[in-house]
Amino acid sequence: MDLFNLSAAPDLRKSMLDLASTKAKATRSSIKMQDCTVFSRAGFRGTGAEAFLASHGIAIPTKPNESLSCQASLVVLRLSRSEFWIISTDNSEHAKIEALEVAAMGVENVYPLYCQHSHACFMLTGAETENMFSKVCGVDLRNNVFPVGAVAQTSVARTGAIVTKQTHAQGDYFLLFADIASVQYLWEALTDAAAEFV
């Protein structure tokens, strides 16, 4: 069979998040949430993944649950010894992501992952975000123990999630990846938790 290109047709992607629903309505919270579910990303796993990515100029975090900024808007998460996600944090690097996916085809011990379509992605900004997380997550995400670059695979509002702290010109922010089918539920749960931080 030919390549089943998960990066295909980026213009036809649609996030299922319904922002018009009452529970999802933005509050006066100082915590801003953005739905980045349709932004391009790719994942690779396998004993050959690290070498494959390195050969394509991707910076490799040294330990699991760490991340690196590769270029201005490309973040690499290392989720285990042999699992990596590459995320375009402003959706400007689609070509690079798609090229990686195509290049991985047929490479031994490199298995492309389905994270583009299996996970929703939210970007959260605001000084109180870490305190909001303490209402929905059992892992301490405060700055002194969860610095920029840190990654936690944990449970957020009872849904499996990957949380990472990143930084860009506008300051620090969190990226949250979670089950795409729970996108509505999770957005509403986070909106509720964020409401008190005005």
């Binding site: 649609k14 509002a157 009872r158 089918a181 729970s182 938790a193």
Partner: peptide, 14 residues
Amino acid sequence: GRIFSPHRFTPMHQ
């Protein structure tokens, strides 16, 4: 507390 009862929608939910 806040009753977190996760529920999943398919993309065709709407």
